[in-house]
Amino acid sequence: MTHPPLRSEAAELHLSHQPAPEDLERPGRRQLSPADAALMEQKVRKVEVAISLVLRVGVLVSVLVIAVGLGLMFAHHRAYLPLQGDFSYRQLTSGTTPFPHSMASLARALARGDGRGVVVLGVLVLILTPVLRVAVGVVSFLYEHDLPMALVTLYVLAVLVGSFLLAGV
């Protein structure tokens, strides 16, 4: 299955050394004037700023929630705290350790104020940051009137959302 890309990669390496003439550029596409190019550049910057803001907020929220969850976990289980002792972390990382792994069990854990549940919530926020990033991408490309890229991004978003639905989250 991996053979065709392997060959084409090698083939591409040889092909791409031949420089192509400039006039083969996108057919039927008007050349941008310097003013238009500057405007385009500004729009691209706006998209970048928006996406980076979404990311920062998402990352910050997830770290805070995870920190609170860890704090609760250690506050509720004093046995976890000593630097030395009989209680091994292995009891918490074996294949049979219980922790929330569905929306229903997560909701129950959160209702109990369980630290594990809060950590899982923070991790889910982190998992959602790339999805949110793609969603912002769709909106920004539409805003730029770049329909081909908006459709491409929309497809990626649909696959992402579909993957969560298929998994049954």
Binding site: I66, G69, L70, Y89, V119, V123, S163, G168
Partner: peptide, 18 residues
């Protein structure tokens, strides 16, 4: 999503890693 549902995201490992 699949990893979460299969119970492969253990909070005590995921928290320090994240």
């Amino acid at each position: 999503g699949v990893y979460f549902i299969r119970g492969q995201i253990d909070p005590i490992i995921a928290a320090p890693v994240a």
